[in-house]
Design a protein around this nucleic acid. Sequence first.
RNA 1: GGAGAGAUGGCUGAGUGGUCGAAAGCGGCACCCUGCUAAGGUGUUAUGCUGGUUAUACCGGCAUCGAGGGUUCGAAUCCCUCUCUCUCCGCCA
Length: 435
Amino acid sequence: MIDPKFIIQNPDAVKEAARKKRISFDVDLFIQLDEKRRTLQTQVDEIRAEKNAANEKISNLQGDKKQQAISKMKEKSDEEKQATEELRQTETEWKNLLLTAPGQISPDVPEGKDDTENVELYKVGELPNFKFEPKSHEELGKDLDIIDIERGVKIAGSRNYFLKGDGALLELAVLNFTLHKLAAKGFTAFIPPLLVNEDAMVGTSYFPGGEEQAYAVGVMRPGEQHLESDEKFLIGTSEVSVTSYHSGEILEEKDLPLLYAGISACFRREAGTYGKDTSGLYRVHQFQKVEQVILCKNDLEESTKMHQMILKNAEEVLQDLHLPYRVVAVCSGDMGQGQYYKNDIESWMPSRKNYGETHSCSTFLDFQSRRLNMRYKDKNGKTQFVHTLNNTCIASPRVLIALLEVHQNQDGTITIPEVLRPYMGGKEKLSKGPS
RNA sequence: GGAGAGAUGGCUGAGUGGUCGAAAGCGGCACCCUGCUAAGGUGUUAUGCUGGUUAUACCGGCAUCGAGGGUUCGAAUCCCUCUCUCUCCGCCA
């Protein structure tokens, strides 16, 4: 969330951010609520101050005088109860509204309505020029018996799949290679909880708003027809767990920036995407991802530097894998509520005859850290909210689409990029037969 | 799953209805003293909201002793619910 004072002091900037991001947020209503909240708070405080003063006297009184004073205070107490109730309601309303306020938006963000208006910044790598009719990853996966979508659907429903044999090994190779690369760059690797509580979802700003994209976990009681909620949620990205790692803590400036790399399975309901990307591994309910998470000091210059750094890390991985890609500036309408600036990396996917999103790099400023109450003591001893950033470093199986399709050969084999071979037992090619 | 114990400031740990935002110790910070210096002394040391004011200085009010409710004129202290931690038993990759 943003600083409530910022909304009061810069209503126009907030209105502008909401307009650009196509988020509905009633600034005027918020200001009204804030005034109401403060007035009520003052009232309650005054009543309490009166009571506190009187109570101090009561403890020294005796007999009748004491009884008189006590009965008088009874009335005050009722008065306080009423005022407190009203304050509580207003505060809840205020808080709920505040959670929906848009974060600040960088002046560098292109304005646009959705992902069709993202702006390409640059391209890297040469597109493959096949001398034969290239196959899609689905065909390749089937022919090589390394991807089994049919059986995935049979046992888990649509958008599910098995990776099998070399397919399974290849995914682990890609993840392993990436995680080791980040570790070598000073990142701390994390295997985080996949199930988190609601606070982590709200803290990273997936809730409120993203509830229907997350799987809620429940328990089935014997004899019951329905799940009973256990109030845990499956993460859609390790960003949720890893960014929340230091929630509620006060860090030291000398320890910043913290460079974290989470590796985890990710779960997404993909509600509202019926009919979109229905075939293959592009849009699935479960995938694995190595995610970079940065906590740095509250300084725009610093977080801009970090943004560039984690963007480059992801680009390096794609270059190592010899995959052509492009980097786009995500437009305002395609940005999340809390994101200040965002780049996507899109990898070339021959079967789509287009680039497809494989990475997403976001700077949040203090939007998440305010929700997570995650701060640090700066040089002057003042507590500040950290800045948070995150970027995909690799996400599979989506990246396998590019990997299999780009590196396929006429004979139906796949050339494994050199950097992955150590993680594949030295194998240079994927071909038919047992792995 | 069964039985029990517990949750207090950066840490350890007192505190069972009013003078407790909270003893004491440790740690941190500031200053002072001292030729036996990994010592001694003094002071200081939580956070949030809010008002005086436009301000990270100052002064005041309010809140916060795991969270949320309740009893009471008054709650760290009594009651209820929840969360978490620990011990024992059971189960278990």
